[in-house]
């Protein structure tokens, strides 16, 4: 595999409950005191906020193990590449304000400067691992706070541009792969439980019911009135329940519909190994099928990590970055098929 094919450490598929949960993410929103929020700040404000953030990161040692991208370095195709790697938000990439972005070398930590809030930073961990993600996010929060003054009120907590992020400023989420619950049509019932207690559930790719690959993100909606750990415990509890249901559904499928499941899984593998043209959407659906086979132990020739990294590398901007070429859509589909084939045939 080419050396450019590295992906973030959070995609290593070696965390707790990795057969069902891809990753855990904790994101904190913070604003610098006495500077208007991003959308109302001047260009000079934007530049100063970027500089202050860079200073703070440098002084706390974060630049020793990561890099800071300037506004110019965030232009396309870099923006799309970062979105696909979950390191920057689409709003951030599309924004006309001057921005800066910190990314740690292992891609577990990133910090956006001048998104909707001045600072939005996140830590991602493999599997269901809030202790890992939250501890690292809180550590960065403390380091930053030693360097700059946050907009904070005793009543409302951390002050954010939008009142929906107020208080803890925290959005905690779990990304789960739930194919067996989708096949057995239990998914709605299970996810309704999560929504009932005020959590948000959405598909990873595309909104609403059209979710590619059966990946679902569970996250908190409320950020005021509960401590960070209370919020995290709620999401972790629900996630553990969802994991149990998914595993039960997988057991059921293996007992009652083994042939059908094996057929689906081996067809996915066969197409990935044999296709000469692969769109990004088709690739993700097939890789998801393959992932189920690996998680169930039906397929042993590839492991969870290889499957998980493929999910990122087949996406358009990452494929082109890895190949070091700018390609048309048709060229991409062809090169994608070649890359997937080579990865699965001779690894």
């Amino acid at each position: 595999m080419s050396p450019n094919a590295a992906v973030g450490k959070w995609l290593a598929a070696n965390g707790p409950e990795a057969d069902v949960v891809l990753s855990t993410r904790v994101r904190l929103a913070r604003n610098v005191a006495e500077v208007p929020f991003t959308h109302r700040a001047t260009e000079t404000d934007h530049e100063r906020t970027i500089e202050v953030a860079r200073w703070a990161l440098a002084d706390s040692g974060y630049l020793d193990s990561g890099k800071f991208l300037s506004n110019e370095e965030l232009a396309e195709p870099q923006g799309q590449y970062l979105i696909e790697r979950h390191l920057a938000s689409p709003d951030f990439v599309a924004s006309k304000a001057k921005r800066g972005l910190y990314v740690s070398n292992d891609e577990t930590t990133s910090l956006m400067v001048n998104e909707e809030d001045h600072l939005r930073f996140q830590v991602m961990a493999s599997g269901l691992d809030f202790p890992e993600a939250f501890t690292a996010a809180a550590a960065l929060d403390e380091k930053l706070e030693r360097q700059l003054q946050y907009a904070f009120s005793g009543e409302f907590g951390f002050l954010t541009a939008c009142p929906t992020n107020l208080g803890t400023g925290m959005r905690a989420s779990v990304l789960a792969h739930l194919p067996a619950l989708v096949i057995t049509r239990e998914i709605e019932k299970v996810l309704r439980g999560a929504m009932h207690i005020g959590l948000a559930v959405r598909g990873l790719y595309g909104e609403g019911s059209e979710t590619k690959g059966n990946f679902f993100q569970i996250s908190n909606q409320k950020t005021v009135g509960q401590t960070e750990w209370e919020i995290i415990e709620t999401i972790a509890d629900i996630s553990r329940q969802v994991i149990t249901y998914e595993r039960k559904a997988r057991e059921y499928l293996m007992k009652k519909l083994r042939v059908e499941v094996e057929d689906k899984v081996f067809r996915s593998l066969g197409l990935l190994k044999g296709a000469r043209v692969l769109s990004s959407d088709e690739a993700i659906n097939l890789i998801a099928g393959l992932r189920l086979g690996v998680a169930l132990g039906i397929i042993n020739e590839v492991n969870l990590e290889q499957v998980t990294r493929l999910m990122i590398l087949v996406r358009p901007a990452n494929l082109q970055a890895m190949l070091g070429e700018k390609l048309s859509a048709a060229e991409r589909d062809e090169r994608r098929a070649t890359f997937v084939r080579e990865t699965l045939v001779h690894q």
């Binding site: 610098v32 202050v52 200073w55 703070a56 002084d59 809180a138 929060d141 930053l144 706070e145 030693r146 360097q147 700059l148 003054q149 946050y150 904070f152 009120s153 005793g154 009543e155 409302f156 907590g157 951390f158 107020l166 208080g167 803890t168 925290m170 005021v224 009135g225 509960q226 401590t227 960070e228």
Partner: peptide, 16 residues
């Protein structure tokens, strides 16, 4: 309405 999580200790603005 009342925040109960982590609090800001009023940073010392060193970087600024």
């Amino acid at each position: 309405v009342q925040h109960v999580g982590r609090t800001a200790s009023g940073g010392r603005k060193q970087a600024q």
